[in-house]
Structure formats: structure tokens, C-alpha cells
Design a protein around this nucleic acid. Structure first.
Lengths: 327, 327
DNA sequence: TTGTACGCGTTATCAA
DNA sequence: TTGATAACGCGTACAA
């Protein structure tokens, strides 16, 4: 290519990289030649010299789950804006595999890591094995010196319950997933806090913990209506549970939202928007979460590392399953 | 590292790469030193020499859709088994962005491409812009000289309808998505073929085309039952439609599967397994599809390129929404 | 069996 | 303003 332009290799390099120590005429000659040959500088050679590859490693544990993808998308998008690329590795929750991937990524000289949790519980820190910056996203690292970017589940629950209270609902129940999930526990905490602030107690006496499924929603709704027939709103731990709850309420001839309002969680479009009726729900803004993690990784790469926990706010999406109490 | 082992760099290289022109004692010394320093050969430098990076570019258009992820997972898994890595790029259906990504991936010297379609329609070939092997998966390339690995939608429909016929169902309807989708058309073709082979016609006179949603399923089921009240089975274009159909049948006091059997499509766990009743459905085996594409890419990288269309078989998953006709 | 020298494609330094 | 040269880390032919 330099030959085609009739200059030396180093001059061509300068011309292409926009350095100003090159004559305009020469530059255009080089650029033309490059275009004609559709020349692309070899990123490997560049990385070898600069020590930076403009590549980050994305380590996940459960890409199949529906939370990983939006986060991944947000990360990828933010990285692309900075001309960086993603090497994707799914360890499938296997420690051996994870170690192996870390080695692979390091040998490929990635500039940094993003570790994507499969649920939002605490997870062992990997930072000790990794000599480049690491950001944890969705799942929190056990090491408080690491940087974790998380969805604000407590805040999301607050949004949901405050919405119900503001609509005049006073007998609010809560049906959610297994207590072993931090997401479930945090949402209970947020729910309790808001109820207490308004001098209310939870209908049914406490949260009903079960599975994250429609089936559990259908069952739990029957239980809740048996123990607390006067319930006028149900906040559900996710949209599938909410769908099941809606099914049961309909079976029992309760009108939604007139008799009982329902709020879901996750804004899983296929469930929430197509429910009968469409669900008011909490959106985790996961794509934004991923983008935020990527930006914090850039900061670390630029020598401005951070530590601790960043909580990313959720958004309330209002649809037809909630409305003011009818007088 | 070589220093620590007290040998020259090239001797160390030979020892690590298992070449037999090195003394056993030396080798162990080198290996020890490498382990102590947790030495990892620089993949960039290797790639620079060998011309092969053991990296492939995965180009998608709509990672958000639920079909991409299983395929991606299958690809990633198959690649990891061959010690290869994936650079992930989501063009989001934008041609500009796609060109840009192709350039990025080429400059990073990927060994090959996998192009993941966002739906299974024909798509323009990218092979002209790409000087390394390319395999198209899920969506077919317009150029018959390219290699496309696709789900066998016609075959999947055959599985579903043959299952219904074998259960003694004779008045089979079909509710599916927009006719603009090749998936919908192919499944209609398969359905018609099987019905014809058994001397049957489609209940309702023909397929009902609408959206891929529960809402459409609920509506279309009413339409179908109005025009063909004797229908004893409904094959649905996806699991969401099937869920909607099940809802309406239940509303209309039809028993599933006693009065009407239902088959879905996709085996989308959250819908199919948690439906009332759980759905018999067709699984596209997408992870396998991705793995197959990866293996065909390896073949091409090894100098055994292929062309044309590979159709990957589907699997019938039988649950409670189908059963033999009661005498 | 081991070590020396070269080259992969690029950028940076420095001499011309 | 341009070009020669070294260096990045590794693998390999070839010399010792």
C-alpha cells in the first residue's frame, strides 16, 4: 500500500493516523492508495505495540436468562461507541470453565472485564485473578473494593407500592419468588418501607414466597384471597406471577383493576403488554445498566477507578392493570 | 520467564509448545517457571505470526429477539471446545453499522464470520465484502453459493400435524403469524402437505394469519370456532398464540385436550410449560443449530467449504395439551 | 539439545 | 517533510 502511494511505510502510517508532520499532497496520495486497496490496519500489530487492544472480555454465567441479554446489549452498544469490541464468554456457572475463560481473555490481552451476574445475589470476587480493571454488573461482588453496578430493587418496589398507595389502595398484598433470591428480599424490604410510611400493613400479613412462575401466581392469588378477601391491590415479584394472579382473579370474577389492582415487575414485554389486562410493571432499564457499567469501565481504563455499589434506578411503566379506586 | 528457567527464549517456546527437540529436564524447568509466573503466551503476537487468531466474528441484527440467544449460545459453546473465541457485534438491522462492524472484525483478523439472521427470511449476502469464510445461520443468504444453516420449519409443522393426526384428530385448524414471515408460510406448507396426505382439509378453510401474540390467539380462536365449531385440534404458529387460543377455549368452556387439542411452536419454556394446560409444542433446537453452524465454519476454515442450505430438524415436545380423541 | 537471527504489521524515535 | 530503524512477543529455520 505504501508502495502504491510511492512513500515509505512510516510515512504512510503517519498519513493514515492524521499526524500533522506530513505534506498535504502526500497525505491524499496515501489515503487514495489506502482506499483503493481498502486497506485496514492490523489491530493485532497495533495492540502488540500499544499494549491496548480496545477489547474487553464479557464474562457471563447464564446468557440464557432473559436479564443478561439487555445488559449485554447495553454494554455492547456503549463499547461500540468507543470503537471497542467485546469478547463473549459464557461460563455457564462452572468455576473451571470460568477460570479457563479468564485465562483465554487475558492471553488475548483484553483491556478490561465486565462480569455479568446470573442473578443479583452476591458472588465471589474474581478481581484477584485478573490484573486489569473489572466491573461487576447485575450481580454484586462480595468484595466491597470492587465496583458493582446493580438494579435498584428496593427502589423499584418503592415505585410500585407508592403508585398503588397514590391510587387510593390500602389493602396491598405481595406475591413474589423464593426468599433465597436477593431480588425477592430487596423488593419485600422496599414494599414494607412504603407501607410503613403510610401506616399500612401488608394484606395477608406478609409476602407470599414461591416460584417465579405463572403457576405460583395462580395458586398464591387463591391463598391470598382466602386469607385477606378485602385485598384491593397485589404487587407481584415479576410479570409471570402477575399474569398468573390476573388469571386467578378473572377466574374468581374479580375485576382488574376495579376490584383489585395488579403491579408486576420486569416489564417483560411478551407477558406484561399482552396480559389481560396489560400490566403496570417496573422496568429495570437493563440496557441502561449495561451502558453504565461500560462507562464506568472506561473510567477505570482511563485511570479513574471506582469502588463500591452503584444502584441504577428503575422505571414504573403504567398500563391498564392499575387505576384509582372507584368511589 | 525464560530467564527464570535459565534458558533462551526460543528453547522456552519449544518447551511450552510441546516440541520434541527439547530435553525432558529442560522442559520441566521451563514448565515450572511458566507456572510460577502464571505465564500466558500473548495471543496477539501469535496471531501476528500465524495469520490465524482463533477468533470468529458473530454478526447479529437483533440480539434482543429470543431466537438469537440460543443460537449464539450454541455457537459459543462449539467454539470454546475448539479453543476459539467470539467477537460479538449487533448491527441492530442498520446497514451502516453492519459495514462498520465488518471492517472492525476484519481489522481484528477474525478467522471467519457467523451471520445470525433476525428472522428466517432471505437476506442479502455479505460474502462479497468478506474475504474469510462466512456461515449464515437462522436467516438464509440470498446467494445460493453461500452456506446457510436453517431451522426446518416445514418439517416442524409436519411433526406437529402428524402428531395430531395420529391422535385421531381430523378437523385441524391453523392459527399463525403474519404471512410476511417465511416461518409462517413454511409452516403452512408443511401443515397443508400432511393434511393432504391424509385426505383432510384445514378446518376453517385455511390458515388464519395475524400477529405472533396471545392477543391474536385469543381473537382468532373465537373466529375459528365460529366458522368451524367442530374443530378438534388447533396447530398454532407459536406458543404465545397457543396460549391465547387456550385462554379463549377455556373461556368458551371447551376442554383441552378432550374437546380440542393444541400444539404450539418454539417451546418457549415460560409460555409452553406454564400454560393451562402445558403445551405440546415444536422445539427448534436452536442451540444445536448454532453448534452446527460453528462446525461448518470450522470445516470451511480447514479448507472444506460447503454451499447451499442445511436444514436442521425440529423436535416435538409432547405435554398435556394433546391427547388421543376420546371415543 | 540449545541458542541466534529473522519476520509477522504497526508505531515511535530520530536522522536525513 | 520524509525514511530508516528499533521494538512489541512470539514461532521457526538454521547454526552452533
Amino acid at each position: 500500500m505504501a508502495k502504491l502511494a510511492g512513500v515509505s511505510i512510516s510515512t504512510a502510517s503517519k498519513a493514515l493516523n492524521g499526524r500533522d508532520e506530513v505534506a498535504p499532497a502526500t497525505r491524499t496520495r496515501v489515503l487514495n492508495a489506502a482506499a483503493r486497496l481498502s486497506f485496514r490496519p492490523n489491530a493485532l500489530a497495533r495492540g502488540l505495540i500499544s499494549g491496548r487492544t480496545r477489547t474487553i472480555g464479557l464474562l457471563t454465567d447464564e446468557l440464557g436468562g432473559r436479564f443478561s441479554i439487555p445488559v449485554l446489549l447495553g454494554v455492547e452498544n456503549a463499547l461500540a461507541n468507543e470503537q471497542m469490541s467485546v469478547l463473549l464468554c459464557d461460563a455457564r456457572g462452572d468455576a473451571i470453565r470460568r477460570r479457563h475463560y479468564i485465562g483465554t481473555l487475558l492471553s488475548r490481552q483484553v483491556d478490561g472485564f465486565i462480569v455479568l451476574g446470573d442473578d443479583n445475589d452476591l458472588r465471589p470476587s474474581l478481581t484477584g485473578e485478573i490484573p486489569v480493571p473489572v466491573v461487576y454488573v447485575y450481580g454484586e461482588s462480595e468484595d466491597p473494593d470492587d465496583l458493582s453496578v446493580l438494579a435498584d430493587d428496593e427502589g423499584g418496589a418503592r415505585l410500585a407500592v407508592e403508585h398503588l398507595v397514590s391510587l387510593g389502595r390500602r389493602r396491598i398484598g405481595h406475591i413474589t419468588g423464593p426468599q433465597t433470591y436477593r431480588a425477592a428480599r430487596d423488593r419485600v424490604t422496599g414494599t414494607r418501607a412504603v407501607l410503613a410510611e403510610h401506616g399500612l400493613t401488608m394484606a395477608g400479613g406478609g409476602p407470599l414466597h414461591g416460584q417465579w412462575t405463572q403457576r405460583w401466581g395462580r395458586h398464591a392469588a387463591r391463598v391470598l384471597l382466602a386469607t385477606a378477601p378485602e385485598v384491593d391491590a397485589i404487587f407481584c415479584g415479576n410479570d409471570q406471577i402477575a399474569t398468573g394472579v390476573a388469571d386467578t382473579l378473572t377466574d374468581l370474577r374479580k375485576r382488574i383493576p376495579d376490584d383489585v389492582a395488579i403491579v408486576g415487575y420486569d416489564n417483560w414485554e411478551e407477558f406484561a403488554a399482552d396480559c389481560r389486562p396489560p400490566l403496570t410493571t417496573v422496568d429495570l432499564d437493563l440496557e441502561d445498566l449495561g451502558a453504565a457499567a461500560a462507562r464506568l469501565l472506561f473510567d477505570a481504563l482511563d485511570g479513574r477507578p471506582a469502588a463500591g455499589v452503584v444502584r441504577h434506578p428503575c422505571r414504573l411503566v403504567v398500563r391498564e392493570s392499575t387505576a384509582p379506586v372507584t368511589p
